[in-house]
Simulated scan of single mutants.
Amino acid sequence: MEFHFAKQLFVEYLQIEKNASPYTIKFYQEDMESFFSFLQSEGINKLDSINYQVVRLFLTVLYKQNLSRKSVSRKISSLRSFFNYLEREGKVTSNPFLHVTLPKAEMKVPDFFYTQELEKLFDVSDLTTSLGQRNLALIELFYATGIRVSECIGVTVNDLDFGLNTILVYGKGRKERYIPFGGFAERALVRYIEEGREQLLSKSKTTTDVLFLNAKGMPLTTKGIAYIFDNMVKQAALTVDIHPHKLRHTFATHMLNEGADLRVVQELLGHEHLSTTQIYTHVTKDRLRNIYMNSHPRAKSRE
């Protein structure tokens, strides 16, 4: 089995059987290519020549590159899955990554927006224009549902149910989930669909049921959404970074800080494991102070 032929088989397996997203496949390919380059540098050209000692040497090379523990863990997980597939198909006799311990992940508090920062972002859109209506609907939907950017670009008009105020989202592995949204998002979406989207769609010679369109009437891309959010931050004169995933972090943080059940948030976010959702259980300083002031018997002085 040649390396690149094995990679091609695995990619086809990810696409057909696992229904993996293009982003997932891209990362798998990068991790495999990194490992293959290392093997070539060591003069190893057969899959069955790879053993635990070879893997340990590869890990040493990774750590010398000063990669984060998260990056190293991802590479190990990718390659472990790759060799699991090869072993299952009878292409190798064992998985050399099977007993490699994943480095402990760095516990970082997810970056999120405070309410005051969000309000400024909600106020910058010019609702007399089609693009302004689209931008407000976009940021309201992200904050209302916590969807991923890869999920957002696939949303169609028919995925919205304004009778129940829910949106149908296709997550990782094309798993379906319904997410409710509130009044602010509803008003922004209805205005955009009835006015702004129609104006944008008229600029294109094709028809599409994709919800969010660019200035030419074509479906928005992930880069397009990032560009829109960057401009909104500049217009709001905020000195903060913004990316679609930060709004997802904000959704989860605000939900949990207001008392939402952890498993409910897990389902809304489409997380397979509860441990993934638990990174959002940090408490903001404002929330911590309010809990203390309302709970401690002697927090408030008596008049």
Rank of each mutant, 00 (worst) to 15 (best):
T93S: 14
S94E: 14
N95V: 06
N95I: 07
P96L: 09
P96A: 06
H99A: 04
V100E: 05
T101H: 13
T101L: 13
L102Q: 08
A105H: 11
A105N: 12
K108I: 11
K108G: 03
P110D: 09
D111F: 09
F112Q: 03
F113Y: 11
Y114L: 11
T115L: 15
T115C: 01
Q116P: 00
E117D: 13
E119H: 12
E119Y: 12
E119D: 13
L121F: 06
L121D: 02
F122T: 01
V124S: 02
T129Q: 10
S130P: 02
S130Y: 08
G132S: 06
G132F: 09
R134L: 06
L136F: 07
F142M: 14
Y143V: 06
T145L: 09
T145E: 10
T145I: 08
R148W: 11
V149H: 07
S150L: 10
S150Q: 10
S150W: 02
E151Y: 10
G154Y: 08
G154A: 05
G154I: 10
T156Y: 05
V157M: 10
V157E: 12
N158K: 11
F162M: 04
F162T: 03
G163Y: 13
G163C: 04
L164Q: 14
T166F: 15
I167Y: 04
L168E: 10
V169P: 04
Y170V: 03
G171R: 09
G171T: 10
K172F: 06
G173T: 07
G173H: 08
E176Q: 15
R177N: 07
Y178R: 14
Y178Q: 14
I179R: 03
G182M: 11
E186V: 01
R187P: 00
L189S: 00
R191K: 14
I193Y: 02
E195T: 12
G196E: 07
E198S: 11
E198Y: 06
E198W: 08
Q199G: 00
L200N: 03
L201Q: 15
S202C: 02
K203G: 00
T206M: 10
T207G: 00
T207S: 13
T208D: 05
A215E: 13
G217E: 05
P219F: 09
L220F: 04
L220C: 05
L220S: 01
T221L: 05
T221S: 15
A226Q: 15
I228E: 03
I228N: 04
F229I: 15
F229Q: 14
F229R: 06
F229D: 00
A237G: 04
